[in-house]
Design a protein around this nucleic acid. Sequence first.
RNA 1: GGCCCCAUCGUCUAGUGGUCAGGACAUCGGAUUUUCGAUCCGACAACGCGGGUUCGAUUCCCGCUGGGGUCACCA
Length: 498
Amino acid sequence: MSNPTLRTRFAPSPTGYLHIGGARTALFNWLLARRLGGKFILRIEDTDQQRNIPEAEAKLMQDMRWLGIDWDEGPDVSGPHGPYRQSERLDAYRAAADKLIDAGLAYFAFDTAEELDALRKQAAAEKKAFKYARPNPLPSRADADRARAAGKPVVIRLAVPHVEMVVHDEILGDVTFAAGEVEDFVIFKSDGFPTYHFAVVLDDDHMQITHVLRAQEHLMNTPKHIFIQRALGFRTPQYAHLPLVFNMDGSKMSKRDKAKDIAAGRLPREIDVHDFRVSGYLPEAIVNFIALVGWSPGQDREKMTRDEMTQLFTLDRINKTSGRFDRDKLLAMNTDYIAAATPARLLSGFRDYAAATNSPLAALDDAKLAAALAACKGFRTFKDIDTKVGPLFAADESITFNPDAVAKTLAKNNGQGYATLEKLTPVLESVATWTAENLDAAIKNYCEQNAAKMGDVAQPLRVALTGNTISPSIGETLTLLGRDATLRRVRRCRETRS
RNA sequence: GGCCCCAUCGUCUAGUGGUCAGGACAUCGGAUUUUCGAUCCGACAACGCGGGUUCGAUUCCCGCUGGGGUCACCA
């Protein structure tokens, strides 16, 4: 079952990083294309001059590549149906609009924003739905020129036929809109740019898109798009509207959440793909997780490689129900992926993470880093590595002692912890070969001779060496730190006793 | 408010005209443990309500309720 003529696309507008919801839309389009041997196209929808952000396009592409979602045609790889940026296709949009005007299928309108606003308010006051009233006769080109000369805004509206419209949706089934539901909407803005509706339809036709998978919030736009297609004589692609994804509390996942979290003194939630990268997630875990929000291969399958998903993906297994983004489950999945990753993948994954952050471990060579990663068995994200072993590779002076940790492990019982450090120093100094095994053995031996529990020794040591109670197992910790630094830090810690 | 979509554990979901309604995450309990992770074992937990259709509905139909989306010269 393959379909080489199948073409899907992802068409983000360049307003920032790739949103996690957008990533899912991109993934589903990609999955379908890969499943059926079709093509996946990336197109940049930059018709809103106000909102475009220069860096955004590059970021979007970087995030997609990071997730492993690659495209066959796009702004940077070109292809037979370009250009793949809407701002570079203005002539085509204008020509099409002209054609519609000439055919009487679209017409000029000169209303100001204020006038429209007033009409809408009035309709609302009368509890009626506002529908733009088509003038009769339609304004001529001369009228448009006069309006322009008079400084009025000139837009083009589609003359929408008064007929029922049935949208065939691959996920939702047939959705019917009564005649008159769709008003004469704007297809060309007064700034000379097409609206989204007009541009998508022209682009999808031009790029021979056969399947449009997009978020369900576009469902109400679909009749508009089909009306444009009919006016232009285009065929209609297959539509599939994906269920929405929300926060756990049911609210929209928005970049604003981050600002809200910061304002509330919380750690900002991850919203963009890039945020998850910075938080230390593995892209394959993210891809697996987002695929499962709104889609399921059945048979209780959850863990899947990209290839497995590609084999299993079908439109008829996409759900209609909207979902919530369960970060706990993502974290658990990431933990599993990390546990299952090869040392080499962990290494490359961490390098990737470090490139996007200011990880204190960025400067380590591969051998050191691999050792650090191995010492942290059971970690959940790459960020955990930073907190767990970061202090071991920082300068001695940068170690600050957590007061709670000091109180609990060192100062308690008249400074028992400090006393332990003192007694332990010669033990450590006498370890002939500084390996995790030897150090563990020496410390265990010390515990036995002094009737101490492992925690009584390990915890004071941890605090002395890192300022905190978190580090790999004590032998690993000492090995990663090295003999000299260990003895230095123990001394330094005892000297700081207040 | 108009239009449209949706409805299985707290969450993501599997599933069937007759099932002990399954899995995963979370939660709770226990085990393990030198910290934080992690790991192991166990438990709790769902078919929104009301009508039909049917020998029998969680499953099919209708209504209700609830949730959501959308009503721009944004995409």
